[in-house]
C-alpha cells in the first residue's frame, strides 16, 4: 500500500450501529446553515418492517477516488485534494445537473433560486473542508459552510454521531476500526475504546 493511498480521506457508515436518529444530517444542516431542501447528508432506512433485514445508513458525497462528477462536469468546476476530498467551485458551476447524473450516491443538491425555477449552483458535502475561497474566510463559510478540517476538527456529522456508526478519516484508519468491530462481534464488551 503506497503512502499516497494511506492518506485518502473516506466516510464509512457502520449500518450495524446506525439507529436512524438523523443527528448527522441535522448537525450538517445546522453547522453549515444549509437552506431547506438541501440535504448534504441524509439518513435512509431500507427494508423497513422486514425482520432481520431492516437497516439504516447515512449517505452523503463519498469523495470517490475516481470521482465521476469531476469527469463529466462541462465547466470543470471540481477538484480533488491531495487527501482525496472532492470539492467544487460554486462560482464556476452553472447548475446543469450532469454531476448528479454521474453520481452513484445522489450527492449533488440543487437549490432552486431563479424566478423560473432555474437550478442554482450545485451544493454537496465538502467533508467540512470548505472550498476554493480563502480558508476560513467569510466568503468560504457563506458558500461552502464551515472548514473544520482546516481547524483540525472532525467533520461535524461524524463528530456528533451518538453510536459512532459514521466514521471518517484516512481510509486505512477507518478500515482498521471497522475490522476491529467485525472481529469482536459476539465476544462481549470490547477492551479497546470505540471510535478513534
Amino acid at each position: 500500500m503506497s503512502s499516497n493511498e494511506m492518506s485518502k480521506m473516506k466516510f464509512y457508515c457502520d449500518d450495524n450501529r446506525c439507529i436512524e436518529c438523523d443527528g448527522c444530517s441535522v448537525a450538517c444542516a445546522e453547522a453549515h446553515e444549509l437552506p431547506t431542501g438541501v440535504n448534504r447528508r441524509k439518513v435512509v432506512t431500507l427494508n423497513e418492517g422486514i425482520e432481520g433485514k431492516e437497516f439504516s445508513t447515512s449517505i452523503a458525497c463519498m469523495h470517490c477516488t475516481d470521482a465521476p462528477c469531476e469527469q463529466v462536469c462541462p465547466v470543470d468546476c471540481f477538484y480533488v485534494r491531495e487527501d482525496g476530498i472532492v470539492l467544487h467551485d460554486k462560482n464556476k458551476c452553472i447548475g446543469c445537473g450532469y454531476c448528479l447524473y454521474a453520481c452513484p450516491f445522489g450527492a449533488p443538491q440543487f437549490p432552486r433560486d431563479g424566478a423560473f425555477g432555474t437550478k442554482g449552483a450545485m451544493d454537496k458535502c465538502t467533508m467540512c473542508a470548505g472550498g476554493p475561497e480563502e480558508t476560513n474566510s467569510e466568503k468560504e463559510r457563506h458558500l461552502y459552510g464551515q472548514n473544520r478540517i482546516a481547524e483540525g476538527k472532525v467533520p461535524v456529522c461524524a463528530a456528533m454521531c451518538s453510536t459512532k456508526a459514521l466514521l471518517v478519516g484516512e481510509a486505512q484508519e477507518v478500515a482498521k476500526i471497522y475490522r476491529q468491530r467485525v472481529s469482536s462481534y459476539g465476544k462481549g464488551v470490547q477492551s479497546a475504546p470505540y471510535g478513534w
Binding site: 462541462p74 465547466v75 470543470d76 452553472i94 446543469c96
Partner: peptide, 19 residues
C-alpha cells in the same frame, strides 16, 4: 458554449448561456 464551458472558464458567462 455549455459543451465547451471548461475552455471558456465557466461561471456567469456559461450560466447566462445555459439560461
Amino acid at each position: 458554449m455549455i459543451v465547451f464551458g471548461d475552455k471558456l472558464g465557466g461561471g456567469s458567462l456559461i450560466r447566462l448561456a445555459k439560461d
